[in-house]
Design a protein around this nucleic acid. Sequence first.
DNA 1: CTAAACTGTGTCCCTTGGATACAGAGTACT
DNA 2: AGTACTCTGTATCCAAGGGACACAGTTTAG
Lengths: 255, 255
Amino acid sequence: MTVETGGVDKRRLFELLWGTPAGPRRGPRPTLTLAAIARAGIAIADADGLEGLTMQRVAESLDVTKMALYRYVPGRAELVALMLEDAIGEPPPPPAGADWRARLDDWTRQLFDRFRRHPWAQAATVGARLPGPNELAWVEAVVAALTGTGLTGAEQLDVAVLLVGHARNLAQHATPQGAPAGSREAAFGVLVRGREERFPALDAALRGIDPAAADAALDFGLARILDGIGTLIAARTADPRSGGAADRGPGGRGE
Amino acid sequence: MTVETGGVDKRRLFELLWGTPAGPRRGPRPTLTLAAIARAGIAIADADGLEGLTMQRVAESLDVTKMALYRYVPGRAELVALMLEDAIGEPPPPPAGADWRARLDDWTRQLFDRFRRHPWAQAATVGARLPGPNELAWVEAVVAALTGTGLTGAEQLDVAVLLVGHARNLAQHATPQGAPAGSREAAFGVLVRGREERFPALDAALRGIDPAAADAALDFGLARILDGIGTLIAARTADPRSGGAADRGPGGRGE
DNA sequence: CTAAACTGTGTCCCTTGGATACAGAGTACT
DNA sequence: AGTACTCTGTATCCAAGGGACACAGTTTAG
């Protein structure tokens, strides 16, 4: 059980995420470090999820009292934000000599990996947040990969949103550490079985699935997304005024 | 503040989501209904988020004691699951005479709308869940729309995962009820300003953005995804053995 | 009419996040 | 060197929340 503190001290959090380590202080030297606390929290959340993360447990794992943590962190919510920054980490350098597609492909898989290694990161990224330096660096990497493709700045950001969402979403659907092959189909199958008249298309789809085949939802979605981006870039290259999200009519049925 | 109960009684939850209303009982007739409880919870969560949802408040809004709720629902976690089923609701019928693309486009926007109307639904859909009838019906709708397009059953499910993710993800990024135009850019801009050498591409991208332009991330991503699916369907139509996610090589760079 | 089953309630307990006041430790300034 | 200031870790306290449990009342089956 864990309490989600609703309110987040945005000023303090900004300082924690973006501020400098601060110069020499006066009193006794701190026993802990922000980074150490974040690591401790990550270890606990990795093992038992966000619900298992309590100030008490974090303090114990650092051999300190619970209240000592509040000298470093305003509250639990801010701790989670710090943990997220640390867990996501810096984006990897793009593969050498790769074009935009290879870079975005690699980028998405790397982000997916980070999310999968820290399942609690899913829950920690709901709602509007103040992004940290690492998080922003990941966005920077996407935009950098798309520089010179003819996409507008807004579109480049839209791509980042799209890819983050896909990586995050699939880390959620993926069973932790390598799917047991066909688990998704099995889960759906149990529900559809006996209700075929209610879910006819789903039933047909499930029948056609090889239960031994690996879950390729990440690959599939990623390939589709990159194909779609490629189509837009190609259109832009041919005619800079063309294509997709540039026509911002209401509804925007595309095609 | 709200406590996320870690454990979910899966058996009881299955009964609640998929079970029949049950026949005539013996004792005094219940004062409440599962649906009524779920509605009450939804109203509270809509107003104050999941953190504002406490058994106490739900009970108060129904003029009952907190413990009375436990006669209907095993715990808070299961209540949230029921609320989700009710809030997502049944999928709308597909627009008449629409092809797969128009159907999926409409489907995604509708789901997006449901998510945006109930921001807490984001947090309620993290991690592996037991889907309810409504949730499964939404998946059914996607698969039905794709029947006959040449996609395999697994691919049809992959599309559903992809689109659910996009709708969900964008409801999160979208500020509640109509964005204040350029809020995302403003938020990023504050962080990038003064750190241009650290986020050069992002800085350039932000400079090129018209702050008055509406946030079109939903449209953009959806158009890209549907384009990508269209490319695959076209390839499949031309040559049933071709394309994308069917080649399941490691990495799967596609293209 | 009786017994069984079910409902809502009052009471109790545990866990959790957080406020506050205090004692000690280390540094800057005279 | 000494003193005053400041910062650290701690102990204590509190309120809120989820949930267990036993009890009294109500309704229906036999």
